[in-house]
Design a protein around this nucleic acid. Structure first.
Lengths: 324, 324
DNA sequence: CTACTTCGAGACAACGTTGTCTCTCAATGC
DNA sequence: GCATTGAGAGACAACGTTGTCTCGAAGTAG
């Protein structure tokens, strides 16, 4: 037998008033006599009554759920986690709840979760797209970190091209001419843009490049091969933090961490405590999340302008590894 | 004028069938003639019809929302983030969505968010308690990481006492007799338990102790003071990872990172790349999240046994800093 | 003292969907 | 050829709540 939560009718009966009066009290209307209010509240307490959200939504014509969805690569990854947190803070200030999901770069998961959130009628979605064909939906969507392949909507990204170019120019300014590139999956716009920045800074002097590196282990192997190969670079540019970790390990392994320069894209905790401390182009995931949330709320509130592409600046943080 | 989503009635009209037939098709009942199914589906497509969740819930007597809440200290903190991710994975395998919230050790926020989730009728809650008085609620709750002050429910925690004791015994085994303790807020059960483990391992030989350290900066100051003070320890035990960061910085600042031993409670990325690599007692946040989610789902499914306290073992990972 | 206003509180319908009942029509068995 | 069955499809009520309408009582003005 199910516990059967009490309804307004039960409350009305125990309080000895009409159903509608309970409704009024529950909704804080002022047109109820004080003693009745007290009786109703007592009954609500004693029965532990809670309004049925479904019925309330139905009657109020309220399709808004005061909930948004956030779909990121992996909520346990520091970048995604910081972004998520910033979105949550923005949402909290508006009394809105946040549903989360990790996509792991899986297009199927992306499509399914986006559809599920649409189905559950979240009021909006913040999505780090990895190339899924999204079902068309009416709900507002803001893309973060990467530019989606097909769909249109507001997009919040780092200044990937100029950030990467700045990193490489920094290496050039420190005398490096042979600079290697280690990058992530090229089907993601971030990987492509950072490579473009690298190329832009170097022109025809572009050095050896390895793409589509997935995790630190792969990156470590690629870096070792590059440093042992012909035309070995004197400096490395690592286009994302997992690749940076692999590069750090590779240099350490070869005992060349003080001989080969390294600049990574994306800051990470303890970068300043490594030996040498790692120079990075820092992104600002918190600001990206905040900005994405603001854009989404504007859309939810009815703003209907053309899709915007908002670029969040990156910052070069010289720490030692890039100034060798 | 509101966009007004279409209802089943609209679909029925455009498909030229009865309301109920649409309901049957939408719910995948098999007692509908194939041509009607096709007509209805076409109408659903063309109108972009989606069932009204409120009405569905109402009619189905379905108070379940297939959603759980996860309230942790800070979803951008690696420990919370890993735990969150594990919960999410468990939930996904059951087709359940996850609402998140960061509490920042704020009891008001804890109470408010727990109440809000109860209000929105999540089916259950996973909570890292920090001492708020929770309103009584009917929804199942599983506590993680810390043991709540008042409320009762299943609890999933690390083996804090024995883990801390093991860390300290490890230092003792390496010849240390004067071991300092750096810990977090004592109103949290984790801080108290880890201190108890420290005391248990040392008995009356317990060394200097500083409690209630909040962030790396505070911890760094405290460690420096301790190492400069009278009876300076030859080894440090840092009871949480933010404190460990501060201790690492302090030793580095004093140039004593190869002279004073350090064991931290809680693993962190790149610990193995520092100099010296940091020995830790690793927790298993992913397993804690998985376990908590399993416990919660059992409760949601109706299990009604006495509250359980599940302890997830910790693992000592010697890396160098504790073997000086 | 009457007429008019105001205010509190209940009756009733409606929101969009699904469970149950009923009806029709065709297929089946004897 | 008639009764029986069953499957497909519609009519209707109901879920728990809120908007609207109504009604009675009390207050106010003339």
């Amino acid at each position: 037998m199910t516990p059967q939560r009490p309804t307004m009718n039960d409350v009305a009966r125990t309080a000895g008033v009409s159903l509608k009066t309970v409704s009024r009290v529950v909704n804080g209307e002022t047109t109820v006599a004080p003693d009745l209010v007290a009786r109703v509240q007592a009954a609500v307490e004693s029965l532990d009554y809670r309004p049925h959200v479904g019925a309330t939504m139905l009657r109020r014509h309220d399709r808004s759920t005061r909930t948004i969805g956030v779909l990121l690569d992996d909520v346990s990854h520091p970048f995604s986690a910081a972004l998520h947190r910033a979105v949550e803070d923005q949402a909290r200030s508006r009394g809105i709840h946040v549903l989360t999901g990790s996509l792991d770069h899986d297009p199927v998961r992306e499509r399914d979760l986006a559809a599920a959130f649409a189905e559950r009628q979240t009021d909006g979605l913040i999505l780090a797209p990895s190339g899924a064909e999204l079902e068309p939906h009416t709900m507002p969507v803001v893309f973060v970190d990467r530019i989606p392949a097909g769909a249109t909507g507001d997009t919040v990204v780092s200044t990937n091209v100029s950030g990467a170019a700045g990193a490489v120019r920094h290496l050039i300014a420190h005398g490096h001419r042979q600079i290697g590139f280690l990058g992530g999956h090229r089907h993601l716009s971030t990987a492509r843009d950072r490579y473009r920045g690298y190329q832009r800074a170097l022109g025809r002097r572009a050095g050896p490049a390895v793409h589509d590196l997935h995790d630190p282990t792969e990156a470590e192997k690629a870096a070792i091969a590059m440093l042992r190969g012909p035309g070995a670079p004197t400096a490395l540019f690592a286009a994302r933090s997992t690749v940076t970790f692999g590069a750090v390990r590779a240099l350490r392994r070869l005992g060349r961490q003080h001989a080969v320069a390294l600049v990574g894209f994306g800051d990470f905790p303890l970068a300043d405590l490594l030996d040498p401390p790692v120079t990075v182009v820092a992104q600002d995931p918190a600001r990206m999340g905040r900005t994405a949330a603001e854009a989404l709320f504007e859309r939810i509130d009815g703003y209907d302008g053309a899709p915007r592409e908002i670029r969040i600046p990156t910052t070069l943080i010289p720490r030692g590894s890039g100034e060798l």
